[in-house]
């Protein structure tokens, strides 16, 4: 099913900007807020996993029911999960399309990667000395 993806700050994401390896940051930024009726259409329960695919890539997130949204729109808090599928082009403005991106959603049984796994997938190395 096609959706419009928006990303943005949330207070939980903000609280964790200096605690990015915490579970709280992982849970918040790997959430996909979605209207309950859309959940039904996708045959998903609140908290189940969903694969979000843009022209740039795909990422597995946890669906979170949210009535703030209009049907047909999903919201993912600013962070490495959303950015995994945001295209890096700026139309010569310096600013990528962080909002209003067309994506495909489908139910998945796959697990989410962690934020560190996402970084390691592209050649990074987690820092573990906590």
């Amino acid at each position: 099913m096609k959706f419009i993806l928006n990303t943005g700050r949330t207070v939980t994401q903000g609280r964790h900007v200096e605690h990015k390896y915490h579970q709280g940051y992982f849970e918040e930024t790997s959430s996909c807020f979605i209207h309950p009726l859309d959940l039904m259409d996708l045959d998903l329960e609140d908290g189940e996993h969903v694969e979000v695919v843009s022209e740039w890539g795909s990422v597995v997130l946890r669906a979170v029911s949210c009535e703030d949204l209009r049907k047909g729109m999903i919201f993912v808090p600013l962070g490495p999960f959303a950015n995994h599928i945001i295209p890096p082009r700026t139309h010569s403005t310096g600013m990528p399309d962080f909002k209003n991106i067309t994506v495909e959603l489908a139910r998945t049984e796959r697990e989410r990667l962690t934020q560190w796994e996402l970084m390691e997938k592209i050649g990074g190395k987690r820092y573990e000395n906590q």
């Binding site: 390896y21 934020q115 987690r126």
Partner: peptide
């Protein structure tokens, strides 16, 4: 954490130094 993956991939390839008090996604 805040740049699209297509940009972050290049950061991982080139020499990068971070000045920051805490470990962040960029640390990786």
């Amino acid at each position: 954490a805040h740049f699209p993956r297509g940009c972050v991939e290049h950061l991982a390839e080139i020499p990068t130094v971070v000045i920051d008090p805490v470990p962040t996604m960029t640390t990786a």
